[in-house]
Design a protein around this nucleic acid. Structure first.
Length: 280
DNA sequence: CTCCAGGGGTTCC
DNA sequence: GGAACCCATGGA
């Protein structure tokens, strides 16, 4: 049973201050591929072993565990971290607005937030993302969860663990229709399962060494590594992404990130990305 | 039919 | 370092 067939729980939600976040813009701006809209203003998503219904009312987020269980303290900490609600985006956007061009991007999608998603899920999704487009990234990652991931209490499927995926072959992954990316997924799983690539180690490394570690995985280059460092580890100062440099920044920003974004280039890029998809 | 989608590996120079 | 070319797939 999938979330679209489940009764949406609407009693006793956890409420969090949205701090200016726009939930829908944030979930569907191309940084996460595990969410879908189930009703007009209700979204369902999976992150790690958690499945969630989420709704926004004005500047408040309403969150429900999709299996109907009560949110505990760990859940609350998890979702605060996930939605990056600890960051002062009002201050950031004010800084960004010192650049006229960047201000234009911020004003186009002021509610976009850079999420902090679980490490292995993020790694898998951005391996899938290479030379691919968002609808297909979403469908491949969904098949990866449903075909090989553990079933959660609410009926959804989480991403498979590295240990599970490491035992499979590219033939096993045929149902994903992931093409040449299948062998990359398996190598990532094997290197994470063996400990050659570990979340804890990467978390302790500076950007350049963390990137070097991630690119040891077959099929992970600087672009995918930077996406993982930004969208999972919240390395907001990570340097721009290759394809992005080619497509947008060199056209509109002449190859330079605005000085106003120093230290927060990753967040700035997310604003730029949203703007560029509509304007380029 | 062709072209492309938020790349990376390989193989040159 | 950088450029050319290949990689598999499905949608437009």
């Amino acid at each position: 049973m999938g979330p679209d067939k489940m009764a949406v729980q609407t009693n006793n939600p956890l409420t969090l201050g949205a701090n200016g976040m726009n939930l829908e813009d944030t979930l569907f701006c191309g940084q996460s591929f595990s969410w879908k809209k189930v009703e007009n203003n209700i979204f369902h998503g999976v992150a790690g072993k958690r499945a969630l219904f989420a709704q926004q009312q004005q500047d408040t987020l309403l969150l429900w565990n999709s299996d109907g269980s009560q949110m505990d303290a760990q859940d609350i900490a998890f979702w605060n971290h996930y939605f990056a609600l600890d960051l002062d985006y009002f201050l950031l956007k004010e800084k960004f607005s010192r650049s006229k061009r960047l201000q234009q991007c911020v004003q186009f999608a002021p509610g976009v937030r850079v999420l902090r998603q679980p490490f292995f899920d993020t790694l898998l999704c951005f391996i899938i993302s290479q030379n691919n487009h968002i609808p297909r990234i979403t469908s491949i990652s969904q098949r990866l969860r449903q075909d090989f991931g553990p079933r959660l209490n609410g009926g959804e499927f989480a991403f498979p663990s590295a240990e599970t995926l490491a035992t499979l072959t590219t033939d096993d992954l045929g149902s994903l229709r992931a093409g040449f990316r299948a062998k990359y997924l398996i190598d990532a799983a094997q290197k994470v399962a063996s400990g050659q690539v570990s979340e804890e180690e990467i978390a302790a490394l500076p950007n350049d060494l963390a990137r070097e570690k991630l690119t040891q995985i077959y099929g992970v280059g600087t672009k995918v590594a930077d996406c993982v460092l930004l969208y999972s580890f919240g390395r907001n100062d990570i340097v721009p992404m290759d394809v992005w440099m080619k497509r947008a920044i060199e056209k509109q920003f002449r190859g330079k990130m605005p000085l106003a974004a120093k230290g927060y280039e990753g967040i700035a890029q997310q604003f730029i990305f949203c703007w560029a998809r509509e304007h380029l």
